[in-house]
Every structure is written in C-alpha cells, then in structure tokens.
C-alpha cells in the first residue's frame, strides 16, 4: 500500500531523512520508534505533504500513485490521514465546519454529492461516542480551549469520521494519561481492517500494549536502522535506543 524508497528529505536545507525505505502493506500496523530528533515527525509530515518539508530524492508510492507530487489536500482525499503531534487550535472555525468541509472535499474528489445534513449529524454523533467526546464540544472552534488529551482524542475523532486508508499517527500517545490512551487505542483499533494500514510514530512502547503492531522499526539518524516484530518494542523498552544509535 505504501512504498517508501531511499527517501531523503530536508527542512530549511538541513537534511533530516537520509535514505529511508519502508514498505507498509494493507492491513498492517507499523510502529516507528526512535530517539528524539531521529526524523520521526519529519517522516510523518513529508508523507502528509506539509509545506517546508522537502523530499530531495527517493520515491513514495501510495497504492501505486506518486504521493510526493500530490498537494496535501489531494493526499488526504486519496486516503492519507496524519494525526498531529501538536494539533492546531483554530478559533473561529468550528469542528463541525472543518469536518463537513473535509467530508465534502473527499466526496467531491470522488465525484460524489455533498453529504446530507442529517446523515452528517448522525455520523458525527456515532463516532464521537467512540472517543467519548461530547458532540456539544464540536460547535466550538477547532481544538479551541481543548485540553491536551481532548486535542488528541479530537484527532482520533477526525480520523474515525474521515475513515482514511492510511493512518499516520505522529506521537498521538504522547502526554496522555492511561484513560485517554485507551480511548485513543480503541479509536485506532476500531478502524483496523484488512484494507487499512497504520503507521504509529511513537516515542514510548506503552501505546503498543494497546495497539498490537505487526512490525516495529527503529528510526535513527534519518534511516531505519533496525526492524523486527512486536518483541523489538519490548527490547527497546528494556535497553533504550543507545545500543542502536551506536551501531
């Protein structure tokens, strides 16, 4: 589903990713772990098409399409979703406005009509239950006045509503208490299916107790330096990253 080959990427001329390769198949969950500054978030943003993150060489294909040439909104419409490490507050744009615009953008992309108001509302209510968000909060500005945990749950809510095929979660688990973490994990597991793939970018092994990965990769110095099964996460938890960074 997602094929990354020898990806080099830089921010402000500084190379962060230095030849990263990764294959993610449909139905798989990949965890990308690594020390701070290894390039984990850069990878997430390059995949989502964030301005300022420049892929200099290499190739990224999503279901056979060259992802790097698509605008960020087109990537989203193709089914790529990035859960932000630091979700943005946008006072004045309500969550409902964002969700409705996002749903209709996807529909338009596929040549479908706009969603009916009643269907939209029913769908939002249904999904909000999973992440235990009071639908009333959704008439407020995007993430406006939300706590750290609420912001992360809101990311998961958007994901549940938009039903992407590739979910990239950038440290969605950071800064969460255990209850919030379980809610986030429930959300991810709800969407887990043979047609969908998940890339979990995380600093902590803890999330992986709730979302069982198929593969674990260690990202260091802009490359994947080690890959393995779920047991690798356990090993990292015990030994830290030092032994890999030195290697």
């Amino acid at each position: 589903m997602l094929e990354i080959k020898n990806l080099h990427a830089s921010i402000d001329g500084k190379e962060i990713l230095k030849g990263l390769s990764l294959n993610v198949g449909a139905g798989e969950v990949h965890a990308i772990m690594g020390p701070n500054g290894a390039g984990k978030s850069t990878l997430a943003h390059v995949l989502a098409g964030r301005e300022g993150y420049v892929a200099t060489t290499g190739e990224v294909k999503f279901e056979g399409k060259d992802l790097l040439t698509l605008e960020p909104e087109a990537r989203a419409c193709e089914g790529v979703f990035l859960g932000f490490q630091y979700p943005v507050e946008i006072p004045g744009v309500s969550n409902l406005t964002l969700l409705k615009a996002a749903i209709n953008a996807r529909r338009k992309y596929r040549g479908r009509a706009e969603i009916e108001a009643s269907d939209f509302l029913a769908w939002i209510r249904d999904r909000a239950k999973i992440v235990k968000i009071d639908p009333k909060m959704l008439s407020r500005g995007v993430n406006e006045g939300f706590s750290g945990g609420e912001k992360k749950r809101n990311e998961i809510l958007q994901m549940l509503i938009l039903e992407p095929r590739l979910m990239i979660l950038d440290e969605t688990d950071s800064g969460l208490d255990i209850d919030a973490l379980k809610i986030v994990a429930d959300g991810i597991n709800t969407l887990r299916s043979p047609e969908r793939a998940t890339v979990l970018v995380t600093h902590y092994q803890r999330l992986l107790d709730y979302v069982q990965p198929d593969f674990v990769h260690v990202l260091a110095r802009g490359r994947i330096v080690k890959s393995g099964g779920p047991e690798l996460a356990q090993e990292l938890e015990e030994k830290g990253y030092g032994w890999l960074e030195a290697a």
Binding site: R50, P72, A76
Partner: peptide, 22 residues
C-alpha cells in the same frame, strides 16, 4: 492552521477563506 486544514483534504482556497472568516 492552513496546513492543518489542508491535511484534512480541504483545498487551499477554501481553507484560506475559512481562516479569513474566522
């Protein structure tokens, strides 16, 4: 904020007008 809206599939022009309205 613009990047955030676009990452949800909203085209740049619509995202911009949403922010202006905000």
């Amino acid at each position: 904020a613009l990047a955030y809206l676009r990452s949800r599939g909203i085209d740049a022009a619509t995202a911009k007008s949403l922010l202006l309205r905000a």
